[in-house]
Computed example of a mutant assay.
Amino acid sequence: MPLFARSLFKAPWGRLKDSEAMNVWLGMVVLLTVIWSLKAGVKPGLAFHLLGATVFTLTCGPHLAFVGLCLVLLGVTLNGAAGTLAYATNALLLAGVGVGVAYLFHRLASRFLPPHFFVYIFVNGFLGAAFSAISVGFAATVFLSLSGAYTWEYLVSDYFPYFMLLGFSEAWLSGMLITLFVVYRPNWVATFDDSRYLANK
């Protein structure tokens, strides 16, 4: 493996072999590319799909999650499901905001809440995923309104409320996957530490 790739995967996944870390990371990129291709929309530019940013962030760390989601968006864009000229904007809104909110939520929970297994699962996996999806929806609503694509009134009444429902779906899926990963493959989850969340409990 090239030195760059080795250093890239050693930083967040020091406990894993490089080949296993790369397989997990690439597998998540492929899986999310399929999930992002399954979307619904009400009007041009107003599409909805599951995000997966929280699972990616908790599993790989924020840096690899952002790079991975940008690759997911690149695959979706090359497949014709997203506008080529809007790639940078979509990457900032979907990958940047999604990963940023998920990681901020994780850091705040680690700092202010007790280090308990169920706190990690429910706060990071469920609540963090919901807030991440809703934050992406709010950021997209503000951007579309400021760009003049749609009016603020229309977006708030007919676009943003769907992200509240999407947040519930995102929370359920992300929480389930993080629970399975932590129980059966805890070494895949870079932000989970056995000594912190399980020792002396």
Rank of each mutant, 00 (worst) to 15 (best):
T191Y: 06
S195I: 01
A53W: 00
V156D: 08
G80E: 08
A129I: 04
N23S: 14
A95F: 03
Y197G: 02
G14F: 04
M1I: 09
H49C: 09
L173Y: 12
G167L: 05
R111P: 04
L144V: 03
I134D: 05
A140Y: 04
G41V: 07
G175K: 02
L173S: 11
T191G: 02
V30R: 06
S147R: 12
A47Q: 09
M1N: 09
D194W: 03
L51W: 00
M164W: 15
V136Q: 05
F126T: 03
T179I: 02
F48E: 07
G100R: 00
N23R: 15
T57R: 02
S157G: 03
G52L: 06
V34G: 09
D194T: 11
A109K: 06
N79R: 08
V142T: 09
L31S: 10
F163A: 07
K17W: 01
L144M: 15
V67I: 14
P12E: 08
L94M: 13
G167S: 08
A81S: 12
G148E: 05
G96T: 08
S135M: 02
G68Y: 04
F160G: 07
V67R: 00
R111W: 11
A47T: 13
V156C: 13
F122Y: 13
G128C: 04
R15I: 12
A11T: 11
F163Q: 02
C70E: 06
M22E: 08
W13S: 05
W25M: 04
L113M: 14
S7V: 03
T54K: 02
P44T: 10
V24W: 12
V123Q: 05
M1W: 11
L146F: 13
G96Y: 10
A133Q: 14
K43R: 13
W172M: 14
L198F: 08
F105A: 11
G137H: 05
M176P: 05
L94N: 11
K39Q: 12
V142D: 00
P44Y: 06
P44F: 04
A190P: 00
W36P: 04
D18S: 13
V182N: 01
G148T: 07
F48N: 06
R185Q: 07
K10W: 09
F117K: 00
D193W: 03
N187K: 10
E170D: 12
T141E: 09
V29L: 13
L146D: 10
S110H: 12
F163I: 06
L8M: 10
V55Y: 00
E153M: 12
T33A: 10
Y184I: 05
F56K: 02
T89N: 15
T151H: 14
I121N: 02
K39D: 05
S110A: 15
Y159G: 00
A65V: 03
Y150L: 10
R107E: 14
S157A: 11
I134V: 15
P114V: 05
K10S: 12
G14A: 11
L71G: 03
I121P: 01
Y150Q: 11
G41P: 06
T59M: 08
M164I: 15
R111I: 03
S37N: 07
S147W: 01
Y150T: 12
L93S: 10
N79Y: 08
G128W: 09
L146E: 13
S169Q: 07
A82T: 01
A40P: 02
